[in-house]
């Protein structure tokens, strides 16, 4: 970094220089990611414990989920992760227009993810594959399974919390679109985009585990 005497206006006075400000923001972001891992961690523990108690039930109940929709959502989310990272790349390369385009694409992919999730959820609400005591589906393919409502409790809580993260991420990306369009972010200062990018990749990362756990095995 070239040390000119006039400090940029986005540099807050309590930081030594731009680099320190950026690194501090990033450290804070990773501290937040750590708490996110532990939040979802509790739910992963629930999954592991109940799977260890009802292995056959989990293997049988995951057949009730639509693998194609899950696969499509995985592809949609990976694509949105790519467009997000390309938005950061474009702004680093001083191409604000491309960055804006990539952010909008990311937003639309996130919307698509929630749309597919909505189709899945509404089908489950229709047939009664619901958590806990709301479970009422008694179709022939699960006649031999004990306690499938537990599978759906864990399914709805984990994918629901993940879906909430997608929705929050959409709000954050919408704000990034606004800030980039206004020209507030540029190749010198794009910290919010990098941080929201990290959050967005975490959302992708969690889905990478949820997809095989619920749909495949």
């Amino acid at each position: 970094m070239s040390h000119d005497n006039s400090s940029p206006k986005f540099l807050q006075h309590h930081f030594h220089d731009v680099e320190q400000q950026y690194e501090t923001a990033k450290l804070g972001m990773w501290a937040f990611i750590l708490t996110e891992v532990l939040t979802f961690g509790g739910l992963f523990v629930a999954y592991v414990v109940y799977r260890s108690w009802y292995p056959e039930m989990f293997v049988g109940a995951n057949l009730l989920l639509d693998v194609n929709k899950g696969l499509l959502n995985t592809i949609v989310l990976i694509t949105s992760s790519l467009t997000m990272v390309l938005a950061v790349w474009a702004i680093q390369k001083k191409n604000q227009k491309l960055s804006l385009f990539m952010l909008i694409a990311t937003f639309l992919f996130a919307f698509m993810f929630l749309g597919i999730k909505y189709l899945e959820y509404s089908h489950k609400f229709e047939v009664g594959q619901l958590p806990g005591e709301y479970y009422s589906y008694m179709g022939p393919e699960i006649a031999h399974l004990n306690n499938p409502h537990i599978f759906f409790s864990i399914y709805f809580i984990m994918t629901g919390l993940h879906g909430l993260h997608v929705a929050i991420g959409m709000g954050l990306i919408a704000w990034l679109i606004y800030a980039t369009a206004k020209g507030n972010l540029n190749s010198e200062y794009y910290t919010p985009m990098e941080m929201i990018g990290i959050f967005w990749h975490l959302v992708d990362l969690i889905w990478i585990y949820l997809f095989p756990l619920f749909y495949l095995i």
Binding site: K26, V37, D204, L205
Partner: peptide, 24 residues
């Protein structure tokens, strides 16, 4: 792969990677 490349941990200061690995 997502963490190292998309989240830039590969090129970051290693304190970030340390924190992430510790959470795991």
């Amino acid at each position: 792969i997502v963490a190292l490349f998309f989240m830039h941990l590969l090129w970051d200061d290693k304190k970030n990677l340390t924190m992430f690995v510790m959470s795991l």
